[in-house]
Simulated assay, not measured.
Amino acid sequence: MSRLEAVRDDLTAQRVDAVVNAANSTLLGGGGVDGALHAAAGPALLEECRRLRRTTHPQGLAVGDAVATGAGGLPCRWVVHTVGPNRHRGQTDPALLASCVTRSLAVARGLGARSVAFPAVGAGAYGWPADEAAEVLVAAARADLAEHDAPDLVRFVLVSDRLLDAFTAALARSAGTSPPDA
């Protein structure tokens, strides 16, 4: 049985099979989660992303899609890159945000990953309110795990108490329990 959890921690330090990168469509690094993962992974990650751009993704990665690379110097085996919808650019369809989870989990399963760590895709520079992003991402993960027997662990790794509270509440609601201090 798969387990869903939320923790406040550093995504770059996760000892899981795969971490999910909230990438931009260029796949060539950026700010926030993307910048932190590229910095921690070292140049090998950027070189793999450049290879993807030269071969399978010359136009970049589409919103809601996912693709994997090696992890460079990170303590995981793979990085699964996904591009969240940018609310500031009018990309407000929750199905695109949910697709970031389902496509990332499908790619991770294809690699044989048994544990996957996600950031709060969309809830940073792309403008999704924390509570809404948490509801969409958690619901997508729970639905995907109900259909598939892998991965064994999906962990949402969050950088602030505000995000942790939003994801903890969404996890409790999706499991049919009351959130702590509710």
Rank of each mutant, 00 (worst) to 15 (best):
Y126D: 03
G90L: 07
T168M: 09
A39F: 09
L164H: 15
L105H: 11
A18T: 11
A117D: 07
P58I: 14
A150F: 07
C100A: 11
D10P: 01
A133H: 04
V19L: 00
F156H: 04
A141Q: 07
E132L: 08
V159W: 15
T92R: 15
A98Q: 04
M1I: 05
L28Y: 12
T69I: 11
F167D: 07
L61F: 07
P58R: 11
A146M: 02
D10G: 02
E48L: 11
T55E: 15
R173V: 10
L28K: 10
P85I: 01
G124Q: 04
A23I: 05
A150H: 12
S99K: 11
G30Y: 02
D149I: 00
P75L: 08
T69Q: 04
A106D: 13
L61C: 07
L163W: 13
N86W: 01
L45C: 10
V16D: 10
Q91A: 11
H81V: 02
G176H: 08
T69W: 07
V121E: 03
D65N: 10
R109M: 12
G110T: 10
P151F: 00
L105K: 09
D65H: 15
E132K: 05
P85F: 01
L52C: 11
S25A: 15
G35F: 07
E147T: 15
G72I: 03
P151W: 02
R77S: 15
G112S: 12
L164S: 09
A6Y: 10
R50Y: 09
A113S: 13
A140Y: 00
S104Q: 09
C76I: 08
P119Y: 06
A170R: 04
R87C: 06
V63H: 04
A36Y: 14
D181T: 07
A172K: 12
A169S: 15
V63A: 09
G176K: 03
A68I: 14
V107G: 05
F156V: 01
L45T: 11
L163V: 02
A36R: 11
A6H: 03
L105G: 06
V138D: 03
L74R: 12
Q91R: 07
A143F: 04
F156T: 02
L4E: 07
W128F: 02
V101P: 02
V19R: 01
Q14T: 05
G60T: 03
Q14C: 10
V138A: 10
S99M: 09
A113Y: 12
R3V: 04
A117R: 05
P129V: 11
A140H: 01
D161F: 05
V16M: 04
V67A: 01
D181E: 12
P94V: 00
G90R: 00
R15F: 00
D165H: 12
A143H: 13
G112V: 14
R142V: 10
A133Q: 13
S160H: 05
A95M: 10
F118H: 00
A113Q: 15
H57D: 12
G122K: 13
L61K: 02
L153N: 04
G90I: 04
G124N: 06
V116W: 01
R54M: 03
A39P: 02
L164P: 08
P94I: 01
D152L: 13
R50Q: 15
V157H: 14
H88V: 00
E5C: 15
F118K: 02
G122F: 06
A106Y: 03
A175C: 03
P151M: 02
S178D: 15
T168A: 14
D161K: 00
R50S: 11
A13I: 00
A18W: 06
T12V: 13
Q14A: 14
A22S: 11
G32W: 04
V101Q: 01
